[in-house]
């Protein structure tokens, strides 16, 4: 069995690889038997990360969810107590509702805007500069996006409220009012992700073979027919992937809430991940936090499964 210590660094590997290659591949009894040994060597480092920082914590997380653990002592097995407590915890249900609201607003806006932008770019402008400008917000961290809008949307002297007032409308307490707090968080995230998602869809559009459009044109298809019969079916795998990725990411909103409203006003932005964070780290209730995390995990798995299953995201129509 090869070990990670035998892993050559890129430079050494290039200089005298033949010898190493041979000793490592002695097992090669023809290609039919496969490259298992060399494959194990190649995936060894990634495997370490995979096992110790994904698999073990996943199991431990599930275990912790059945315990009471305040970090100081040892975890104490309490069976389903955390889960029954969660079922009766109004703050949990609130966090679920608030997160759902956030995901809905965010995904609907973001996907619609991104699809529109992608089609616009595909039609009139494919320049890298334009795509770069649209991508800029995505390259900024959530914290930066949050603080930037925290300032622009400030009730007193934020520039947006300045405009709103000029338009003759009453100022909006974007972060301070319960009804606006979640839409505001969703808008910040939409702002940050809109261009990125548009670029993903744009790339999907670019991948559609041009001759299909030419054929459609020759057959006298209208723009709408072309869009429905060619663009959408061939774009479907990309759209599904975009949806899966953005929905999953969206459920895990935390950063923007943590640096702006911190769950408030009242409980208006206490999204799931923020609630987990509070229970586990502020209140040192790791068992309870883990149990909510398990529930979030299950929700995400279910959502992804449904999306992949019903939208057949893993099948491409291009073949």
């Amino acid at each position: 069995m090869t070990t990670i210590t035998k892993l050559p660094d890129p430079v050494a590997g290039g200089s005298k690889p033949q010898h190493r290659g041979k000793t490592l591949l002695r097992a090669g009894r023809g290609r039919r038997l496969g490259d298992l040994r060399i494959a194990l060597l190649f995936i060894a480092p990634a495997m370490i990360g995979f096992i110790f920082f994904y698999v073990v914590p996943t199991i431990r997380g599930v275990y912790l969810s059945f315990t009471e653990y305040n970090i100081l002592g040892d975890p104490e097995w309490v069976g389903l107590d955390n889960y029954t407590a969660i079922a009766q915890d109004p703050l949990f249900w609130n966090s679920l509702a608030v997160t759902g609201q956030y995901v809905l607003i965010n995904i609907a806006l973001q996907t619609a805007l991104a699809l529109g932008l992608a089609l616009l770019m595909h039609r009139v402008a494919k320049s890298t500069l334009i795509r770069g400008a649209l991508l800029l917000p995505y390259l900024m961290s959530n914290v930066i996006a949050a603080l930037l809008w925290f300032w622009m949307l400030d009730y007193q002297i934020g520039v947006v409220n300045q405009f709103i007032e000029w338009a003759g409308l009453p100022r909006v307490a974007f972060f301070g009012s319960e009804e606006w707090a979640i839409p505001t968080q969703a808008l910040i995230n939409t702002w940050r992700h809109m261009g990125y998602t548009a670029l993903l869809i744009f790339a999907g559009l670019q991948a559609i073979p041009g001759h299909l459009y030419e054929v459609a044109k020759l057959d006298g298809a209208s723009a709408f027919q072309t869009f429905r019969k060619i663009t959408i079916p061939l774009l479907r795998p990309v759209l599904v992937l975009v949806l899966v990725v953005t929905v999953i990411g969206s459920f895990q909103v935390f950063d923007t809430v943590a640096v702006t409203t911190q769950g408030g006003p009242v409980n208006a932005t206490r999204v799931i991940q923020y609630y987990i964070y509070q229970r586990a780290f502020t209140e040192s209730d790791f068992g309870y936090g883990s149990a909510i995390a398990v529930i979030l995990f299950l929700i995400l798995a279910l959502v992804a499964f449904i999306q992949m299953k019903f939208l057949k995201g893993n099948e491409s129509d291009l073949d």
Binding site: F50, F52, F53, Y54, V56, P57, T58, R60, G61, L64, I71, I248, F251, Q252, F254, Q273, I276, Y277, A280, F286, G289, S290, A293, V294, L296, F297, L300, A301, A304
Partner: peptide
């Protein structure tokens, strides 16, 4: 599949580790 695991989920045990 690990892409599906929400970072918060592994973050708690990883923090303990």
């Amino acid at each position: 599949g690990t892409m599906l695991v929400p970072p918060i989920f592994t973050a708690l045990p990883n923090f303990l580790l």
